[in-house]
Every structure is written in C-alpha cells, then in structure tokens.
Design a protein around this nucleic acid. Structure first.
Length: 277
DNA sequence: ACGGATGTTATTAA
DNA sequence: ATTAATAACATCCG
C-alpha cells in the first residue's frame, strides 16, 4: 500500500535514524530486487558511503549518497516497508539490509517482493521516474482542473492512479478520495461537473495531508511483521473509508449502506453506491 | 485448498 | 490514438 503518506513517513524514518552514519556492510537475501546493477557493485558503492539526504518522488524514496553522489532509489511495491534496529536481529521478510558503523541496521523488507531498488547517477536513468506526473500536494486547483478538463472518457479512479499524470496515489487512497468527494468510482472524467472536480481537488489534498499527519505521528510503530495497515483501524477516523474497506463493510456515513466491491482496472475498489454518485 | 492481495508493466483486445 | 482487460512478477493469508 505504500502511497504518498507511507513513503513520506518512510523518508522521515530514514532521516531520523540513518543520516550521516557510515555504511559498513550491505546484505541481501533477494538481490533480484536490485534492478540496474549487480549485488557486488551495489555493495561496493554503498560500503563506506553515507546517506546524506532523503526525498520522495511519487511513491519512490530517493536517498542521496554523500561520497559517491549517487542516488539510492526505493520503490515499495505492494508490501514493502522499512525497519530500523539498533542491534542485529533477524527481520522477517528482510530483502536488503544496510548496516551502519554504530551497528544499527536499516532493513528494506517485502513480503511479496514486488518492490525495486536502484543505484543511479540521475533520475533520468529510470523511465518511470522520468515520466512521473505532478505531485498532488503541489498542484494548484487551476492546474488540476486543466489536467482533468480533458474531454476523454477516462475512468476517474484510473486517472487518479495514473502515475504519469498524478504521482503517488494508489488503490487505497484513490478509493478514500473518491469517497470523501462523494464521487462514484465508475464515472469518467469528462462526465464530472466542475463543482465535482473542485471537490475532488480539495479532498485529494485533505485526505493525503490527514494521512501524512497520522503516519508521521506513528513513525516508530511500523509493525515488524507487516506495515501500516495493522494500525489503520485505530488511527484513521471512522468517517474514513480506510477502516471499512473489507467485505461486509458499511458506509461510514450510514450503517445501512452496504459498501460495494468491484474491480476497476483490475484493482479492488470499495465505494458507497448511495453516497457516491 | 484455493482465491485474493496495498503496485507496475507488457501485451493484447476493443 | 486511446482506453480497457489480462497476465506476470513472489509469497502469504484466511
């Protein structure tokens, strides 16, 4: 699920714990996740180097390295997350482990191993990064309306999740944004009124900012066996769809409204057929 | 036991 | 030219 709020939190987590420490060892039990370089070269560049700064591009985390001036890029796929430890322990689902000179460690973990890592000189080396759309938190309403003004029958949920248009929104947050905006996920962009588009823009910002606040507040509660979803029930307001995205889920606005579950673009989508039109 | 799962891409179809 | 549908990637969970 790592979308903008989660990747933002992962970035802050790395910043809090890992900057300026010298990497002494890199281990990997799943080197196939490292995409543009072999494991030996990956290790050779990283060992002796330091994480200098951290930023986020869409769902990608970018870590600038001090000595080599290269960038360590991480994408978390479906199930990726990070764990920082002060001493060595076995970490379930660990794929790549960065060990620092104070014996602390940063693990990149993934259950289903759909994530990717790169070590590059420039983001232009990764096609998906180069083609990334605008960050939804940096949009002005005017820019958003211009993008969505397109007179195409493109599905609205597919639009929100299209990384080349808007960078960083995935299945869960697109459902949440559409729910908060009261828009049926089966609608197409040419079919929405200007008022609906404006509401969508507003909710996109407020949903993401609210989720970022929650994630940042729970940085060190990243569960060792999974990731954020395990704490979602307790952290998200019940007026959010997030806590109700399961079979038998009820609309947070009205318990008599059963949530519908359909596939859009191959992805499971939950919505309230009564409140979302 | 088998279907489904939070992401992305390539391929094929419409 | 565009959009939609499907499979593939690897693995765990209910």
């Amino acid at each position: 699920m790592p979308e903008i709020p989660e990747v933002t939190a992962f970035g802050a987590y790395v910043k809090n714990h890992c900057l300026k420490k010298v990497i002494t060892l890199v281990q990997s039990t799943a080197p196939q996740l490292i995409k543009n370089i072999n494991l030996a070269a990956f290790k050779q560049i990283l060992v002796g180097d330091q994480f200098e700064s951290v930023s986020r591009l869409g769902k990608y985390l970018v870590i600038d390295l001090k000595k080599s001036k290269k960038k360590l890029v991480m994408h978390f796929g479906l199930t990726g997350f990070l764990t920082y430890l002060h001493n060595h322990e076995n970490v379930r689902y660990s794929c790549v482990n960065f060990i620092f000179n104070d014996h602390s460690e940063l693990h990149y973990n993934s259950v289903r191993k759909f994530g990717k890592l790169w070590l590059i000189d420039s983001i232009d080396e990764i096609k998906e990064l180069k083609n990334l759309g605008t960050d939804p938190l940096k949009f002005s309403e005017k820019q958003f309306l211009a993008l969505i003004a397109d007179n195409k029958p493109k599905n609205i949920k597919v639009f929100l999740m299209d990384q080349t248009i808007i960078a960083g929104i995935g299945n869960e947050y697109s459902d949440e944004i559409l729910f908060q905006a009261g828009i049926d996920p089966r609608r197409t962009i040419n079919d929405l009124s200007v008022a609906q588009k404006k509401r969508l823009f507003k909710m996109m910002g407020s949903v993401l900012n609210y989720a970022i606040k929650l994630r940042m507040h729970n940085l060190d509660k990243i569960p060792s066996g999974g990731f954020f979803s395990q704490v979602d029930k307790d952290t998200f307001k019940t007026s959010y769809l997030q806590a109700h995205r399961h079979s038998d889920g009820k609309c947070p606005h009205n318990k008599n409204h059963e949530l519908a579950r359909i596939k859009i673009n191959g992805r499971t989508s939950y919505f309230c057929p009564i409140d979302q039109r």
